[in-house]
């Protein structure tokens, strides 16, 4: 069991399904269980992709007749 901070509210949750979770990790908690550890690298890549989309779209708009 571990203490998890939900943006200010803390709760005790079970880490049996995320044995690799460590102090400072962000997790998805459901029904008192951590079911996934969030991957910061993947999150950053998603945001970067959205940034790129905007640039690609803007460029396309400029080229369009």
């Amino acid at each position: 069991m571990a203490t998890v901070d939900f943006g200010g509210v803390t709760k005790t949750v079970c880490l049996a399904y995320t044995p690799d979770a460590g102090i400072g990790d962000y997790t998805i908690i459901h029904a008192g269980f951590a079911i996934a550890i969030l991957d910061e690298q993947a999150a950053l890549e998603s945001l970067e992709l959205f940034e790129q989309l905007g640039i690609v779209s803007a460029t396309t708009d400029e080229i369009a007749p």
Partner: peptide, 22 residues
């Protein structure tokens, strides 16, 4: 990285909407 507010950014939301429209 808080994983929540970053994924509610209105500027990026508009870019995704524009991309869908295009």
């Amino acid at each position: 990285m808080k994983y929540l507010s970053e994924f509610a950014d209105p500027v990026l939301a508009q870019r995704l909407l524009d991309e869908i429209s295009a």
